[in-house]
């Protein structure tokens, strides 16, 4: 078993159910890699403005755009990518537009199963292989693909294999090349993201089982995002209440609330907060246990970020935690 050297890969596919924070995790991975000197490209599909918010940058377009030092991003628009691809295959450039703009193409594009996803996967592979013309070295050290949350399990990653069975000609060649890249463990790693909740954890386990059973997808680690700290370590309500009621507690609460809350009200509020903290912390512990016992994969934890707004400062915080989480895993495996 080699070390969890995520940043020595060329492609990271970040996958997970909707709402688990894939955008934040892939952005943090990118930021961390960029700070370690990599030239990183973040690839999105259907970005809804969240990435630009996280980086304080203008909205992403279908052209590669620099976000910060060492990190760029692009939002793939399936139709533009498709037109590009057809253009590369056919030489009559003016006619390509006619085809792509025709209703026939439009309808085919809309109803064909998973064609958009397939075309975008192809584009991701092209970006990984892109080389500078002067030195023929890769343009991007690391491409991070924030995979869309499409339905169940492996869906998207199985697509090239399924497509290669259905298609012939250049599309088939293309699908096979994408499949080879996705299954190559020296080039590609798959990062699975989840949060400490029932559905996302079950989904992650399901994904893991499916990946282990029937495919060669190089699933490298699971990220438990939004792990809730258990600060009160199972102290009973009576113990918490006693600590709050002591002289030091009274003084602390007075300072904390600026004297705006009556002592009893302040105490009640802190007790409520303590109780919720215990419950949420215990839940995280439970699901951490589930993930550990049901999957044989390194588990990276990212703590819940408490902030009124989640912006670049918070993203940096997550990237720092990710760096810490990756270090022991590397040391342990070495």
């Amino acid at each position: 078993m080699s070390a969890l050297d995520l940043f020595s890969k060329r492609l990271l596919v970040v996958s997970g159910k909707g709402g688990v924070g894939k955008t934040v995790v892939s952005s943090a991975l990118g930021l961390l890699a960029a700070r370690q000197g990599k030239n990183v490209l973040l690839v999105k599909m259907d970005d809804q403005g969240r990435t630009s918010q996280l980086f304080d940058a203008p909205p992403l377009g279908d052209q590669v755009m620099a976000l910060r030092d060492g990190i760029s991003a692009v939002n793939l628009d399936p139709k533009t990518v498709a037109a590009e691809w057809i253009q590369a295959q056919i030489k009559f450039k003016r006619l390509v537009r006619h085809v792509v703009d025709s209703r026939l193409f439009e309808s085919w594009f809309r109803v064909s199963p998973a064609i958009k996803e397939m075309i975008c996967l192809g584009k991701v592979a092209t970006l990984v292989e892109e080389r500078t013309w002067w030195r023929q070295t890769p343009v991007w050290d690391l491409v991070i693909f924030d995979a869309p949350a499409t339905g169940h399990g492996l869906g998207l990653l199985r697509l090239p294999e399924q497509a290669s069975k259905l298609l012939i000609g250049p599309m088939r060649t293309n699908a096979l090349a994408v499949q080879a890249l996705l299954e190559n463990p020296t080039l590609t790693s798959l990062v699975l993201v989840t949060i400490p909740e029932e559905m996302p954890v079950n989904e992650a386990v399901h994904f893991h089982d499916e990946a282990k059973a029937g495919t060669s997808v190089p699933l490298s680690c699971v990220v438990l995002n939004g792990a809730y700290p258990r600060r009160l370590q199972g102290a009973s309500p009576a113990e918490v209440e006693a600590a709050l009621a002591a002289t030091a507690g009274e003084a602390a609460l007075h300072a904390l609330t600026g004297g705006r809350l009556a002592p009893e009200a302040a105490r009640a509020a802190l007790l409520r907060a303590a109780e919720r903290d215990q419950v949420r912390g215990a839940l995280t512990e439970h699901y951490r246990g589930e993930l550990r016992s049901r999957m044989a994969l390194p588990l990276l934890e990212l703590p819940y970020v408490f902030a009124e707004r989640f912006g670049f400062a918070e993203l940096e915080q997550v990237a720092a935690c990710l760096g810490d989480a990756l270090r022991p895993a590397e040391a342990g495996a070495a």
Binding site: A235, E239, L244, T247, A252, A255, L256, L270, A273, A274
Partner: peptide, 25 residues
Amino acid sequence: AEAAARAAGDVPALLGAALRAFVDQ
């Protein structure tokens, strides 16, 4: 808040943890 607690006595770990839990929430 912690400084005020220290001035009034010592700060038990539990108190610090409860203060942080409250502020975070």
